[in-house]
Amino acid sequence: MKLRKRLLPLILALLTSGGILPLASADDDDWRDLHQEVKKGHLVGIGEIMDWLEARYEGQILEVELEQEDDRIEYEVEMIGPRGQVVEFEFDATNGELLSVEGVNIEAMRKSP
Rank of each mutant, 00 (worst) to 15 (best):
74 E>K: 06
65 E>K: 15
77 V>C: 05
21 L>D: 13
60 Q>R: 12
39 K>F: 14
83 R>H: 11
63 E>N: 15
25 S>I: 08
40 K>A: 11
9 P>C: 10
90 E>M: 06
2 K>W: 02
21 L>M: 15
2 K>M: 10
56 R>G: 00
78 E>T: 12
42 H>G: 02
47 G>E: 15
89 F>W: 04
7 L>V: 15
92 D>A: 04
42 H>P: 00
10 L>V: 09
3 L>I: 07
28 D>K: 15
61 I>S: 09
35 H>C: 08
73 I>K: 06
12 L>M: 13
107 E>L: 05
7 L>D: 12
30 D>N: 12
17 S>M: 05
29 D>R: 15
109 M>F: 06
5 K>A: 14
42 H>V: 05
10 L>F: 03
36 Q>M: 08
18 G>W: 01
74 E>T: 07
62 L>D: 10
52 W>P: 01
94 T>Q: 12
74 E>P: 03
88 E>M: 04
106 I>N: 00
41 G>M: 04
97 E>M: 07
30 D>I: 13
25 S>Q: 11
104 V>I: 09
8 L>V: 12
69 E>I: 11
55 A>K: 08
103 G>S: 02
104 V>T: 10
17 S>R: 01
87 V>R: 01
35 H>Q: 11
56 R>L: 03
17 S>T: 14
67 E>K: 13
60 Q>M: 09
16 T>L: 15
109 M>I: 00
81 G>N: 01
102 E>F: 00
104 V>R: 06
29 D>T: 06
80 I>K: 04
55 A>N: 12
30 D>R: 15
53 L>C: 03
44 V>D: 02
9 P>H: 13
51 D>F: 02
110 R>L: 12
101 V>S: 03
83 R>N: 15
9 P>T: 11
78 E>R: 07
104 V>M: 05
67 E>M: 04
43 L>Q: 05
96 G>V: 06
53 L>Q: 02
80 I>Q: 06
84 G>Q: 03
13 A>N: 15
69 E>T: 08
30 D>Y: 12
60 Q>G: 10
39 K>P: 14
43 L>D: 02
101 V>T: 08
94 T>V: 11
60 Q>V: 10
59 G>N: 02
27 D>P: 09
36 Q>G: 07
83 R>G: 08
69 E>R: 12
97 E>N: 08
77 V>S: 05
101 V>W: 04
83 R>Y: 13
53 L>R: 00
62 L>M: 11
64 V>N: 03
106 I>W: 10
8 L>K: 08
10 L>S: 02
66 L>S: 05
2 K>Y: 06
27 D>R: 09
8 L>C: 03
69 E>N: 09
86 V>T: 09
15 L>Y: 05
73 I>D: 08
72 R>H: 07
22 P>D: 12
40 K>M: 07
15 L>S: 12
84 G>Y: 04
9 P>D: 11
50 M>R: 04
19 G>I: 14
41 G>E: 07
51 D>P: 00
50 M>A: 14
80 I>H: 03
111 K>E: 00
26 A>K: 13
2 K>C: 04
14 L>F: 07
59 G>C: 02
106 I>K: 00
46 I>L: 11
41 G>T: 07
19 G>L: 06
73 I>L: 14
52 W>N: 06
43 L>F: 13
62 L>G: 04
90 E>Q: 14
55 A>T: 02
